[in-house]
Design a protein around this nucleic acid. Structure first.
Lengths: 236, 236
DNA sequence: AGGCTTATGTACGTTAGCGTACTGAGTTGG
DNA sequence: CCAACTCAGTACGCTAACGTACATAAGCCT
């Protein structure tokens, strides 16, 4: 029961509503690179990450991709199910291996259409997701790779228990939609500045406040909006 | 009554649901540059554009802005009201003057929480909006100003009755989040190619198929998703 | 140990878009 | 009718990021 609280969204549900879902929540392990949702394909389940992180990516015809949002313990993968579209033109890829609860899509929809706390919660979450996407668009337009890398690191860090993440520069480049070499350069700067330490796919954050000083405003805008929309007081 | 059908979202509503709203829909004229929603401020009304176009913009601390989505007769301005957040960190600015229906926020919320066709419709629309934002993020990352201008022109054109739009290059630049000079250059290319004609704030589209040949895939992705999510057959 | 694979670092030249400055052509209003 | 203003076009140097190529280094497997 305590473990359920690891997903903030589920943790915000009143006990009796959670009780509805409890028997149907199935804990699964997500492995790095695993796809939870393919462009245009209907999802059978939605996922509530615990210590895993999932990236929502837009993939283009030429194979280039861009991360448009990231989902961790604070959210759920599969909003298109209850929004009514059933599918999306984006992909959901596991960016950091870990646990998640999964729930049959139909059961989530049933719960959603009861129009109770779960619906309110999911809608607020979706609005937060909207903000994250919007800010990603802005960041892509106006900010340097350096700043975007900081944003990405902080967003990931906020969704992980420790101060380490397992992620090659190649993969980060795919997420940000930039060259791998660009990530090498930016990460090098951060490393020389003593903010992070990089070691063959293992990143350790040494100086988080230092990262926060370098990041663009986009990070704070998104974080503030998540805090506002998903705090216990206002939602329920 | 026929006029109501000018807003596709309202037009998709079953007659009896529309009847609920009808007495409260107030036709207003939106003028170029008018703000319908400021960052963090609660909206008193939502707007269903008829022949007007509204841009959703993210404005940054330094004043630079980027359009994250555009709303015309196919949609509604103010999704944050029914999504539960009440406010958003973005602005809504009238990009093309014209008519719209407006509706008191509270009335829309009441209708939404009846959990009938209006709710389903608004949620599907919100998902389409989500896709538009995601694709804007991708486009900002990967495509040239030339392509983005084409996308922008086509998106606008799809929401206007004729083949003309009133819009200075300065304003387009603000929308796209690029320099005014960049727009001049790109628009110049389109003009020399005989696709558009530009005249002190008055653009006439001469060769729409030509534009469609130059535009990046982002335009089609978004259009397809709007068609899929908001066609009469699936929604009701 | 030694060879293979994968991850990272570095070094080019190229280019799109930026910042800035200025010109000229329409439009408006006194 | 002329001044003031707005809008569009052009030019030029600058920088961030790109594409490409190659070099090291760290882990992995036999």
């Amino acid at each position: 029961m305590l473990e359920l609280q690891q997903n903030a969204l589920l943790g915000l549900l009143p006990e009796e509503d959670l009780a509805h879902l409890l028997p149907h929540l199935e804990q699964v392990t997500l492995s790095l690179g695993q796809s939870l949702s393919e462009s245009g394909r209907q999802m059978s389940h939605v996922y509530f990450p615990l210590d895993s992180i999932v990236s929502l990516l837009c993939v283009m015809e030429d194979g280039a991709s861009t991360e448009i949002a990231v989902v961790g313990y604070e959210g759920v993968v599969g909003v298109s199910l209850f929004m009514g579209g059933e599918t999306t033109p984006s992909r959901a890829i596991v960016q950091s291996a870990g646990k998640a609860y999964r729930l049959k899509g139909q059961l989530l929809k049933n719960e959603f259409y009861r129009a109770g706390p779960m619906q309110r919660l999911l809608l607020r979450y979706t609005q937060a997701l909207l903000t994250q996407m919007a800010q990603t668009a802005v960041c892509n337009r106006h900010h340097s790779v350096d700043q975007q890398l900081c944003r990405w690191l902080l967003l990931s860090l906020d969704r992980l228990p420790g101060d380490k993440l397992i992620m090659t520069q190649e993969l980060i480049a795919n997420m940000l939609g930039v060259r791998r070499e660009g990530v090498t350069e930016s990460a090098g700067k951060l490393q020389r500045a003593g903010l992070i330490s990089y070691n063959r796919g293992h990143i350790t954050i040494i100086d988080r406040p230092g990262l926060e000083k370098r990041v663009c405003e986009c990070y704070a805008v998104v974080k503030r909006e998540y805090d506002r929309l998903l705090n216990h007081h206002d939602v329920m």
